[in-house]
């Protein structure tokens, strides 16, 4: 399941809901992305996320489908926030559930790596030296490439 929202989410409640009533599930893996208070060597006061409505949902659904094709998953949840966030705020939750830990852990890692390079989100930082767009990192492309073959 994919959700895009401005508001925060309750991690405990989301994970509870993800596995409710399914006793085949033996493991849940999760990744939570938070807003850092530093960008390079500058203090970050706020992070504003924008996205491409329509395409974002579509790309995230494709990435979820690819994860389900690769691993036996009972449940997948991706929640991504947009709008203006503060340091310490949650940005994203990726959670996967499977009968066994390996599939859940690997699929969770795959989902966040691919989300970073494929989902159309952009971040702008409000820093001590002004407002600026966060640049894409080549490390993120390398992280994506580990999960070959490509989509």
């Amino acid at each position: 399941m994919i959700r895009l929202q401005r508001e925060d989410f309750d991690v405990g409640a989301e994970l509870e809901r993800l596995t409710a009533g399914n006793h085949r599930i033996g493991g849940v893996a999760s990744f939570i992305g938070l807003v850092r208070d530093m960008g390079g060597s500058d203090r970050v006061f706020a992070l504003t996320l924008e996205h491409y409505p329509g395409m974002t949902e579509r790309k995230l659904a494709e990435i979820e489908a690819e994860a389900r094709r690769r691993w036996p998953l009972d449940a997948v949840l991706v929640i991504h926030r947009y709008g203006r966030l503060k340091p310490g705020d949650r940005i994203v939750l990726v959670a996967t559930a499977s009968p066994h830990r390996e599939a859940a852990l690997e699929a969770c890692h795959f989902l966040i790596d691919w989300l970073k390079t494929d989902a159309p989100f952009w971040k702008s930082e409000t820093t001590s030296v002004g407002e600026r767009w966060v640049e894409a990192r080549t490390e993120d492309d390398a992280a994506r490439e580990r999960w070959t073959p490509p989509l």
């Binding site: 992305g33 996320l49 996205h51 491409y52 395409m55 991504h80 940005i91 994203v92 966040i112 989300l115 970073k116 390079t117 494929d118 989902a119 159309p120 989100f121 952009w122 971040k123 767009w133 966060v134 640049e135 894409a136």
Partner: peptide
């Protein structure tokens, strides 16, 4: 047609 810089989500 959408034009944009490399994406930076997550």
């Amino acid at each position: 047609v959408a034009l944009f810089p490399p994406v930076t989500g997550g």
